[in-house]
Nucleic acid binder design. Structure first.
Length: 204
DNA sequence: TCATTAATCGAAG
DNA sequence: CTTCGATTAATGA
């Protein structure tokens, strides 16, 4: 159903390297900006978001992950600190593996290591696309950029049936716009036939 | 059904 | 575009 080219390591393999299950309730911080990067996380169930807050306290979401995606790993290759927070959007079940073990796993499993590279490339590619779209002062282009990003990142089926499962507020935080602006712009896009809206559901 | 949360709208800056 | 105020729809206990 979905072609997330992002990787996802078999749980059994993770456990064999000492990974542990972690559960977080909705709204909990999994790690915070500034924390030392120590773990590789893989989602079993639920959704999480990666965000930042600017000096005025306005939230800016960097990404929302669900399914069986992983996060927290890029920083493991460096000896750095996280540059954003990871917060659960729903109750989530995660598998957590220490960075040290994670690197060991990669060393002994070249194939997975290779997939990891593909995954990181994928992220860089879309980050570049998002960055470009978000730099536009035109709200319609920002929204469109986000939609294109989400569509290709999460899904692959038919042209006109991608259901965006984000609240308008989340879309606003993702694009740096205000909810009202998102709503109004979305309406314009519907008039222009760029998206379809059925009972508040956004179809692109 | 009540209460909380999200989506909308209109008007003003 | 954003902010404010107010209303309405949707969701969950």
């Amino acid at each position: 159903m979905k072609t997330i080219s992002c990787m996802n390591i078999a749980p059994e393999l993770l456990y064999s390297y000492g990974a542990e299950d972690k559960h977080y309730r909705k709204g909990e911080f999994i790690y915070r900006e500034g924390d030392q990067a120590l773990y590789y996380y893989q989602i079993i169930k639920g959704k999480i978001k990666q965000n930042n807050y600017n000096e005025e306290g306005k939230e800016f979401i960097q990404n929302i992950l669900g399914g069986e995606q992983s996060f927290g790993d890029p920083m493991l290759f460096l000896d750095k600190f996280y540059v954003m927070n990871a917060v659960s959007l729903t109750d989530v079940d995660l598998i957590r593996l220490s960075g040290k073990k994670f690197l060991e796993l990669l060393r002994k499993n070249p194939k997975i290591s290779l997939e990891m590279n593909a995954c990181l490339s994928q992220r860089l590619y879309f980050n570049a696309i998002m960055l470009q779209a978000m730099s536009s002062p035109n709200p319609l282009l920002r929204l469109k950029g986000l939609l294109d990003y989400l569509k290709s990142y999460h899904d692959d089926n038919c042209d006109h049936s991608f259901h965006v499962e984000l609240t308008r507020q989340q879309i606003a935080n993702l694009t740096g716009l205000r909810v009202e602006t998102v709503i109004r712009t979305l309406k314009k896009m519907e008039e222009q036939g760029i998206v379809r809206i059925e009972n508040r559901k956004i179809l692109y």
